[in-house]
């Protein structure tokens, strides 16, 4: 589509006028080095330089709790429902854009998940470029998410006194129209954008001792038997933090709730975690992933091998959240490096 410019002096106006049209959520500070996506009314509330939020924007696409059906026992009726809210999500980093793309793929895989697909189309996504690394936990380069790969309506890159904005969709154009704050850019701005990208190609280096294309082969049958999982088995506390904060973890449980009238209620899906002990248990009492090591192994294989086979992409976005949040200091980069060392992998 096209590029436009938004002066930083107009950023606050942009957010507040947008917030008058639609609910706007954006990264806000929650104390030292802690950020979350939350509703904002003005640009001042937004922290533009932020490390990945505690929860990724997946919480808007696949809410932690989501009603699927509502029932009335006396009337013997069941209705499938969708609860949604129109929203503009501002400030989504490239890692999280990739996470949303992963979820899109999963939920549009047949049979399609109507709840997800309808809700997703009620959300406008405005991306925001990271001009530099956020911290030592990120590994976005090795999974090729340090530069934008689509998945947004508008994409902001910060220049000196302005943002250069890539307008990617009709929805993006609508926002440009409605807010009336964008101005045409010059070649100079495109040159600056290219300079930022060129610098990023320099400073973003594969963060692990494995090349992008070799990650899938690293997670081979031999890796399944690796000592690495025995180490994680001793350290993991099975809290499920890593899966809750992961932008591509989408496992869920389905539970019924009954209201106080003991007649009406709903069937709700709720985020679940493959790291918890009962996750793969069956009625006969058998547990197919009974140890923490087995469950951690499952998590890693679900990021680097199974989706690579099924969808030809890694389900790790390199955001680093699992490492940042782990109470046992289990590090994704260290795990990958340990596997590489064990297999005497040479980059």
């Amino acid at each position: 589509m096209r590029y436009l410019l938004l002066k930083k002096a107009n950023f606050d106006d942009f957010i507040s006028s947008l917030a008058q049209i639609e609910k706007v959520v954006a990264p806000v500070s929650r104390g030292y080095n802690s950020f979350s996506f939350a509703e904002v009314k003005s640009g001042k509330e937004i922290t533009l330089k932020y490390i990945p939020t505690v929860l990724p924007p997946k919480k808007y696409f696949m809410p932690q709790r989501e009603k699927l059906t509502e029932f009335n026992k006396a009337e013997n009726s069941v209705e499938a429902i969708l609860e949604y809210e129109k929203m503009v999500i501002f400030g989504v980093h490239t890692c999280d854009l990739a996470g949303i793309q992963c979820l899109n793929i999963v939920f549009s895989d047949k049979p399609k998940d109507i709840n997800y697909l309808v809700r997703k189309n009620k959300l406008v996504i405005i991306g925001l470029e990271c001009n530099d690394y956020c911290d030592q936990y990120a590994s976005c380069k090795v999974v090729d998410n340090h530069l934008p790969n689509g998945g947004y309506d508008l994409f902001f890159t910060e220049l000196d006194d302005s943002f250069i904005v890539h307008v990617n969709t009709g929805l993006g154009e609508e926002i440009v129209e409605k807010t009336r704050l964008f101005i045409p850019n010059d070649q100079e701005h495109l040159n600056k954008l290219e300079a930022i990208r060129a610098r990023k190609r320099e400073i973003f280096k594969e963060e692990v001792n494995v090349k992008h294309k070799d990650l899938v082969t690293l997670f081979n049958d031999k890796a399944f038997e690796s000592k690495v999982w025995e180490d994680l088995d001793k350290r993991c506390v099975a809290c499920g933090n890593c899966t809750a904060v992961c932008p591509t973890c989408y496992c869920f449980d389905i539970l019924d709730n009954i209201n106080l009238d003991l007649n009406t209620g709903d069937r709700t899906r709720r985020w679940d975690s493959c790291q918890t002990e009962p996750f793969a248990k069956v009625a006969g009492g058998e547990n197919f992933r009974k140890t923490r090591g087995m469950r951690q192994r499952h998590r890693y294989f679900r990021k680097f091998r199974y989706p690579a086979e099924r969808y030809s992409r890694y389900f790790c976005t390199g955001c680093g959240r699992c490492t940042r949040t782990c109470m046992a200091k289990i590090s994704l980069k260290e795990t990958v490096n340990a596997l590489a060392a064990e297999q005497k992998y040479k980059k």
């Binding site: 209705e79 499938a80 429902i81 709840n115 309808v118 389905i254 069937r267």
Partner: peptide, 8 residues
């Protein structure tokens, strides 16, 4: 919204 084509 009511869904008529939900898998659920």
């Amino acid at each position: 919204a009511k869904l008529t084509d939900s898998e659920y």
